[in-house]
Design a binder for these strands. Sequence first.
RNA 1: GCGCCUGUAGCUCAGUGGAUAGAGCGUUAGCCUCCGGAGCUAAAGGCCAAGGGUUCGAAUCCCUUCAGGCGCUCCA
Length: 562
Amino acid sequence: MQLNLSIKSRLDAENALKAEIANALESLFNGNEEITEALNSLEIEIETPKDASFGDFSTNVAMKFAKTAKMAPKALAEALIGQIDCQPAMIRSADIAGPGFINFTMAEELFASYLINALEQKGDYGKVVLPEKKRLNMEYVSANPTGPLHIGNARGGAIGDTLASIFEWAGWEVTREFYLNDAGNQILKLSESIYARAMDHIGKSFPFPDDGYKGEDVIDLAIAFSDLYPGFENGEPREVMEQMAAFALEKNSAAMEQSLAGYNIHYDVWFKESSLHSNGAISKAVSLLGQNNATYEQGGAIWFKATEYGCDKDEVLIRSNGVPTYYAADLAYHLDKLVERKFDLAINIWGADHHGHVKRLQMALAAAGIDPARLQIVIMQLVLVTGVRQSKRKGDIFTLSDLVEDVGVDATRFTFNSFSPSTHMDFDLELAKQQSNENPVFYVQYAHARMCSIIRNLLSINEKGLAPPDPLRLVEKQERALIKLISSFSKEIAMAATELDSSRIAKYAYDLATCFHSFYNSCRVISEDEVLMASRLALVEAAKHVLHSSLSIVGITAPESM
RNA sequence: GCGCCUGUAGCUCAGUGGAUAGAGCGUUAGCCUCCGGAGCUAAAGGCCAAGGGUUCGAAUCCCUUCAGGCGCUCCA
């Protein structure tokens, strides 16, 4: 048996295969300068054939390059195969199919190498080590502290937290951050709402603001405040409202932190918007744009020349009353991330109702001399709950805490991570509650519990000294499929990070569970054949590590029994 | 009116420009003397919203139209 253990995963194999194909093309067209030059810009793609019977990998390079090479796709494929070196540790055979696909069947030794690496690396299998550490700031939820977190925040939290873990697996150093909007008009509106409710509570009347916060939580805050500060109604209303704002901010942000902790989300940094107002960061940001000739004054306000940067209209940075807009604060905040704190990349998860802000913010960064690609925004479409959009300004909302209580953390996080962010989700609450037992998350967790059970059952035999596993014995269709899926884990992580799509990992975990259940039903692990038993046990162990890792990325538990 | 997102099985959703468009739920028929049946194996179910275009090849890229969601405040 000749093993090349440096090929640890599907990614490694793809890269080796690409190099092999590139070499073959090189030697095929050696001497033809025109074609050799075109080769430099050719991207060789490796795919999985639709049908496993076609082989393990395929490439369309012969079809793609046929025109440049001035050859028929099939003829080019034929010539290419003639140049490819079939080595014992890698490629076993290559053949042509359809209009000019080249299908590769890989050597058994390759799959053995995957499995041995997965067993050795255990819970670290699939982790990427970058040559140079990169730093990511991942900001998500960042809800206004004007009330409890709602179901849309639950989606953003699930997506952001999982994407953060994906980047950690992809080799990045990640800071999880919450931007606390503790300044601005909405806080004023909140304090007016509380004041009106508090007056109402003590039997006095005060007009409730037109677009005030009507939720139950505001009444609770008002009652708590009036109990704590009896006689508040004798104070100057504006001063009392300021006290109320501070009181509500503290209560609400603590409540948000607690709800998020109950949802298994923990932040490294809670960044206060108010700090940008008090430390001069906002005026610094605005004058930076001024220095770059990107602002002007009109009607007493300072404007950003956004149209010069391709936006629909110019934007106010400093109002005529001297108060900076949210926009100016957001610019200062992102300059703080990218300049002061020197993150290589900042990713924000925003609801679709903020999508119009994406270009404006990126262009303001550009005007400040920052590469706008260093800020990536993931827009998630809004969650509808039985046809009603969630808003804090109407009463009767369904909160994150309600959701966790009714549906559970695991099912909620798995569900939100099963849909790509651009899906307009309709969250059917009744169905989620009823079907929580049929939820796909249990199917995946059951697979993990089953793996653990098999390993437990074999523990006593294993301790007595089982024969060493021989991965080359794993030749059944289901065994091979499972090894291949295990080896694809790092590729899934890489793709999820590149596409900023957290849903890939939950889908992968589901596929892995399906693949394992299928293996379980057709291949018995416990067997008279001790080498086969040891080999299958090794496969189950490798699958368990990878399933456990993928569940931990999604932020849910991997139970050993259920 | 302008911009962003979406339209795929009865329902909820996947789908790297590639081969016969896939899952789950629901429907129907099977499967343990045996490692956990919260499982497995099948069947049925499709004009990929509509119409053009690009090319060896389009659910995927481009244009137009239709339908739905969201945005277009000196709000955040």
